[in-house]
Simulated scan of single mutants.
Amino acid sequence: MANDVLIAGETLIDFIPERAGPLEDVAGFERRPGGAPANVAVALARLDEPPLFWTRVGADPFGRYLEQTLADCGLPDRFVTRDGEAKTTLAFVTHDETGDREFSFYRDGTADTRLEPGRIGDETLADCEWVHAGGVTLAGGSSRTATLELLERAAAAGCTTSFDPNWRPELWPNEETFASVARDVLAHVDVCFATVDELELLGETGESSTDIARAVIGDVAAQAHTVFVTRGSEGAIAVADDDAPWPADTVSHSGFAVETVDTTGAGDAFVAGAIAALRAGHTLADAVAFSNAVAATATTTRGAMAALPTRDAVETLLEAE
Rank of each mutant, 00 (worst) to 15 (best):
A45E: 05
L90T: 06
Q68H: 12
R64S: 11
D60W: 01
G74I: 03
A43I: 00
Q68I: 06
L66R: 05
T88C: 10
A91T: 12
P50R: 00
G34R: 07
G84R: 13
P76E: 14
R32D: 06
G35N: 05
V40R: 05
A36C: 05
T89G: 13
E49Y: 14
V42N: 03
Y65C: 05
G84P: 12
K87E: 15
R46Q: 01
T89C: 15
L90V: 12
R56F: 05
N39M: 09
E85P: 00
F62S: 11
A41G: 10
T88Q: 13
G34I: 05
F29E: 02
T81Q: 15
W54T: 00
A71P: 10
D72I: 06
P76Q: 13
L47V: 03
D83E: 08
E49R: 15
P37N: 11
T89V: 14
T88A: 14
A59K: 07
A41L: 01
E30S: 15
T88P: 09
T55I: 02
V40H: 01
A71I: 13
V57T: 10
V80I: 07
D77V: 11
W54G: 01
L66A: 04
E49D: 15
F92D: 12
R56W: 04
G58Q: 00
F79W: 11
D60Y: 00
W54D: 04
L52M: 10
D83Y: 06
A41C: 09
T89I: 12
L47T: 05
R31P: 01
T88D: 10
G34P: 07
T69P: 05
C73R: 12
V80N: 02
W54A: 14
F62C: 11
R64A: 15
T69K: 09
G74H: 03
E49T: 14
G58N: 05
Q68R: 15
F53V: 02
D48L: 08
